[in-house]
């Protein structure tokens, strides 16, 4: 396989982007700790991809969130809202302080993402809908002759839903080359490990059989994310990137622990430990 070799500038950018991802992770911990609820595990597994997309890949304008020609992003696993909200705040769509209203009465920062938040392109929460939403956006771009791309992220647990596979057929049927999807393969869903609850097996192979251009990457490697997005530019049809990730990535007691799918750090000690571990690059 041809190895993608970036420029010096890109190497510097990657250092910068890794620092951004640390900030995103710390905000995920702060938000969920402040809210005393929320989903840190799947937000931390998605954090590197979300950060990369918004800071280095997508064509968006925080001063004009509804800009018609922007690239779109659909977070189909809408419970990873802390991850997306943190990235959007750091990008400048709304003040960082606002994140501390997450899940509180009167805030627009609902437990699951809603498109009424500046920068959020689609509402999600009940699983299995976002891939279809993204397909609709990609079809609209084609109808309007626009060059914007539609990015989406689905979960592995979410891929239990039949509608994901309806959408998988559909994206291939319409040959949507402007659709790039990451599958956050963190191997854990609410009740436990994905392979013990409803075995998903080789998801890259499955999507390849559904007609998608597919790749598997380390979803925590900014270099591999950069490389695969370059690869995606040269593939026809919809792209499915299986991102191998670690649920709770960056916090020792959360990593690979199903208990932290939907639970914040339980006390101040654990909260401080989580922030420290993220800072020190556990």
């Amino acid at each position: 396989m041809k190895q993608y070799i970036g420029t010096v500038q890109e190497a510097l950018d990657i250092v910068h982007i890794k620092e951004k991802a640390k900030e995103v992770r710390k905000l995920i911990i702060r938000m969920t700790y402040e809210a005393k609820s929320g989903h840190p595990g799947g937000s931390l597994s998605a954090a590197d991809i979300l950060t990369y997309l918004y800071f280095r890949e997508m064509n968006v304008d925080p001063r004009n969130p509804d800009w018609a020609d922007r690239d779109r992003f659909v977070l189909s696993k809408g419970h990873a809202s802390p991850g997306l909200y943190a990235v959007l705040a750091l990008k400048g769509f709304f003040p960082i302080d606002h994140l501390m209203t997450f899940r509180k009465l009167g805030s627009d920062l609902q437990g699951h993402v809603t498109r009424h938040v500046p920068g959020v392109d689609m509402t999600a929460g009940s699983l299995g809908q976002g891939l279809g939403n993204a397909i609709g956006m990609a079809l609209a771009a084609r109808l309007d002759g626009k060059s914007y791309r539609v990015f989406a992220m689905i979960g592995d647990g979410e891929s239990n839903e039949g509608s994901i596979w309806e959408a998988a057929l559909s994206a291939n049927h319409w040959k949507l080359s402007n659709l790039i999807v990451f599958l956050d393969r963190n191997m854990i869903q609410l009740d436990g490990f994905t392979e013990s609850i409803l075995a998903l097996g080789d998801l890259e192979e499955k999507f390849r059989y559904f007609g998608w251009a597919t790749r598997t990457i380390d979803g925590h490697s900014m270099e591999e994310i950069a490389e695969v997005l370059d690869w995606a530019k040269y593939q026809n049809g919809p792209k499915m990137i299986i991102a191998k990730t670690v649920k709770g990535k960056g916090v020792s007691f959360m990593e690979n622990n199903p208990d932290y799918h939907g639970k914040p750090p339980p006390d101040e000690k654990k909260f401080e430990q989580a922030l420290k571990e993220i800072e020190e690059g556990f």
């Binding site: 689609m122 891939l131 279809g132 939403n133 609709g136 956006m137 609209a140 509608s163 559909s170």
Partner: peptide, 19 residues
Amino acid sequence: GISENNMMAVASGLANSGK
């Protein structure tokens, strides 16, 4: 095709892109 759930999801995506 025979996929009403996906139809509603796609309809929403089209609508939220101005259709």
